[in-house]
Design a protein around this nucleic acid. Structure first.
Lengths: 159, 159
DNA sequence: ATATAATTTTAGCCGCGGCTAAATTATTGT
DNA sequence: ACAATAATTTAGCCGCGGCTAAAATTATAT
């Protein structure tokens, strides 16, 4: 099962191939989305069932099943069919990282005065594209703006 | 040629299906990348050849050919094989929009003090995910920061 | 205990956007 | 004019991440 040979990817295309199990490359956007939601579900209800994951991501259950197998193969989750899903340390790490990015990005967009609906959608897109250095600087900046509310206040009262 | 029937996409998945030719949905990230580079090439050299598009995007020529056909089908370009490629008004519009987003995002990240290499990579990722309202506010904010350099100066001189 | 209902999984499809290898078409130098 | 070279296109492959429909499994209610 899961042949997984025949990797003819262009390395410069794929950013890096470094370690072994879990994060040989990067989690894809889709994988990050799944891990984010699954982690939330496990936190709030203690478990993550396909039916709820599907609802949370607004996709079909059968797509979830397929991805659960992938998450398992890539070392982000432990999965046995009909027997539930848990996240590995690697999976939790990705989930927490994306959550942090989500929080900072959405706080920043909120400070900018973006309407909540746009904010939510754009955050979902942007959060997958912040490298650790950028994340670090953005976080520091948001923290700074939080402590110096006069900046955004002045910005909002612009001509 | 180009059958293009059988669209069983989930509308909520796909954000919208509104107009007809060119932008029935949104340009994908990949399409935006192509249009951005093609437009640059046409501006700087007067034409955009597959070999140069491929070099600019760091992909293979055959992938470019395939995409050129798609850009044509979707109304972003006029393309006849062996006869060159031009952008339609719709294609130019997308290219200019992505360029503007690129410029503002990279200026913002530069203000944050991100290293040029990261900055370039992250900008490429982020620029595809700014809705018009967010773009507008971000642009205004970057303009504000440009006119008030003391803000970023104070931020950089933080403990 | 078993029939019914709910959930999960499989099988098989699709388009996207990469790739390689091989054909085709244009261009260039002699 | 034509052979050699360069550029382009085609054919066919792959993995991803959606989908539907049908099968299999598990849970529930009588």
């Amino acid at each position: 099962m899961t042949p997984h040979t025949n990797d003819t990817r262009n390395p410069t295309q794929v950013h890096a191939i470094l370690q072994g199990p879990a994060s040989s490359v990067h989690a894809t956007e889709s994988v990050e989305d799944y891990l984010e939601r699954i982690h939330e579900l496990i936190e709030s209800k203690g478990y993550a069932r396909p039916i709820e994951i599907a609802a949370a991501l607004n996709i079909k259950q059968s797509s979830v099943t397929k991805m659960m197998q992938r998450l398992h193969d890539r070392g982000y989750a432990n999965y046995e069919k009909h027997r539930g899903l848990t996240l590995t340390a690697a999976g939790v790490k990705v989930a927490l990282s994306i959550r942090k990015r989500h929080q900072y990005v959405s706080e920043f967009l909120r400070m900018l005065g973006i309407d909540e609906k746009c904010l939510q959608l754009d955050t979902e897109g942007i959060e997958h594209h912040l490298s650790p250095p950028t994340m670090k600087r953005l976080a520091a900046f948001v923290d700074y703006l939080r402590e110096h509310p006069e900046v955004m206040e002045d910005f909002r009262n612009q001509p």
